[in-house]
């Protein structure tokens, strides 16, 4: 890690020199202090990234080790691909991979869809103040932690004592049977999707509304002249012009598709084993495996598998999207 930092600072220093070399009138002493300045500015972030982002990447060698705490990362014996074998032959792997993919595709589709829909509906609202008010209100859920969301959900589905809950009271009103939600794995992918939409819908709509605002007015004026209704303009003008923004968010989302949104799922499901069959994803599985059996090797192997697939997915998605729309690609 110290070498990485060294490289960064030397290259900073060299360019600093070339640059001030082109500035007439600067003397050597000043050039030095300038180089030093840029290094100082970049250093905290570079150190943090090297240690906490790149360090763990290097630490993935643990995936190929029979890791034990006493010998550490450098002393533990090598295990080849045993850790990977253990995970894929343990039986749970298929279920967990499926849950991860299925839930994330649901979340991604639902939040993007809700974002577009909410942005288009917000765009119909006349009056700056009213619009801003509603935008603020639907953006609020984004700012609460998964733990708080979990408590909200309990009030709806169970009530603190496990009986009651708003939803079951409503089903009683309509004469439908009450459901003991927290012991019924079937509906959970959909419940979690509703939670995601609740939390992320406003956030997504802010991004899409910004994109709608960037659409030139002339396009809509042409629509009005052609006699389009507002519904037609939303469907034929706004939606197609939102595609590039949606594509960027989709690419970012696809890159995260193998990461299982640990926060939301673990905060809500926790260690409730009856719900694992539909809600256990890679991240929650890894977390439990680490905490209960302390198996570093296998869990790191799963993590590496997850990162590699995620990386491949995001690269493929970026390339596909670049072919689609050249001017809107990332980086």
């Amino acid at each position: 890690m110290s070498t990485d930092l060294g490289i960064a600072s030397t290259s900073l220093a060299t360019t600093g020199n070339t640059r001030s070399g082109t500035t007439p009138g600067g003397n050597r002493r000043k050039m030095r202090s300038r180089d030093y300045g840029l290094v100082v500015l970049a250093a905290p972030a570079v150190i943090l990234l090297v240690v906490f982002a790149y360090g763990p990447m290097a630490g993935l060698v643990v995936a190929f080790q029979d890791f034990n705490v006493a010998d550490g990362v450098f002393g533990s014996p090598w295990a080849g691909f045993e850790n990977f074998e253990f995970f894929f032959t343990s039986g749970g792997a298929g279920r967990i991979l499926w849950n991860t993919l299925f839930l994330n595709i649901l979340f991604l589709a639902a939040t993007l869809g809700a974002g577009v829909l909410l942005a288009i509906m917000l765009n119909e609202i006349r009056g700056r103040v009213t619009k801003r008010f509603f935008q603020s209100v639907i953006f609020v859920p984004y700012f609460v932690s998964p733990i708080v969301v979990s408590i909200f959900l309990q009030a709806f589905l169970a009530g603190p004592s496990g009986r009651g809950g708003l939803v079951n009271d409503l089903t009683d009103v309509f004469g439908l049977p009450s459901i003991s939600w927290y012991t019924e794995p079937g509906p959970w992918p959909w419940i979690l999707t509703v939670v995601k939409v609740w939390q992320m819908g406003g956030y997504m709509s802010v991004i899409f509304l910004a994109a709608i605002t960037a659409i030139p007015e002339e396009v809509y004026e042409a629509g009005v002249i052609d006699g389009a209704s507002r519904a037609q303009m939303a469907l034929r003008i706004t939606v197609p012009l939102l595609k590039p923004t949606a594509a960027i968010l989709l690419v970012l989302g696809v890159g995260r598709i193998f990461y299982g949104d640990f926060g939301t799922i673990y905060a809500i499901v926790g260690d409730n084993g009856t719900l694992f069959s539909t809600t256990d994803v890679i991240d929650t599985y890894v977390f439990r495996a680490l905490r209960t059996i302390g198996d570093f090797g296998t869990t790191a192997a799963i993590g590496l598998f997850q990162s590699v697939i995620g990386f491949v997915l995001v690269v493929v998605a970026t390339l596909v999207q670049r072919r689609y729309a050249k001017e809107t690609s990332l980086l």
């Binding site: 972030a45 982002a53 290097a58 890791f67 993590g303 990162s307």
Partner: peptide, 20 residues
């Protein structure tokens, strides 16, 4: 910029972070 962007695409994950 690339150095700061890569961590958005690829992470070491939970276990190495825990050991670190």
């Amino acid at each position: 910029a690339v150095f700061a962007y890569i961590p958005m695409l690829f992470t070491g994950g939970l276990v190495p972070m825990y050991i670190l």
